[in-house]
């Protein structure tokens, strides 16, 4: 069983995952991300994995697609509270080098830092700039 909830704060969009992200449930994740992007939110997207139990290559595919979409628009994808098994997969694929992983949701949302791809201002005005740190 899998569920994803979309939440928004001033600083970020948060996708809260619950259950097993696999071949069957990946489509739900894609739809949630699609919903966020359709609203024009291309700033900071945090995926809260506190309640994520499992993630296989299909789930990786979702994360990669989200990453690519945001990267092309100057946005950022971060993961929060990733369970050990998922952390392993991220390490295996080397995704943890492209997508920042934080221990807690607050950290993920609060952390500043330069974006991997500095770009346009779209959707980033509310976020702290690298120069402000």
């Amino acid at each position: 069983m899998f569920s994803v909830q979309v939440g928004t704060t001033a600083r970020a969009c948060v996708l809260t995952l619950r259950g097993a992200l696999d071949h069957d449930s990946a489509v739900q994740m894609d739809e949630a991300a699609g919903q966020v992007f359709a609203e024009g939110r291309h700033g900071l997207l945090v995926v809260d994995c506190t309640r994520l139990e499992f993630c296989d290559s299909s789930g990786i595919g979702c994360l990669v697609r989200m990453y690519q979409h945001l990267a092309a628009r100057g946005g950022v994808l971060r993961l929060a509270a990733v369970p050990a098994s998922v952390a392993r997969v991220l390490s295996l694929t080397g995704l943890d080098r492209a997508i920042a992983v934080h221990a807690t949701l607050d950290e993920a949302v609060g952390a500043g830092g330069a974006w991997p791809m500095a770009g346009s201002d779209d959707g980033l005005s509310s976020l702290p700039r690298a120069s402000e740190r």
Partner: peptide, 13 residues
């Protein structure tokens, strides 16, 4: 050995 998946970033290291 280290190495990231291909087709995403310029350097898979």
């Amino acid at each position: 050995c280290e190495g990231s998946l291909l087709g995403i970033t310029p350097d898979p290291r």
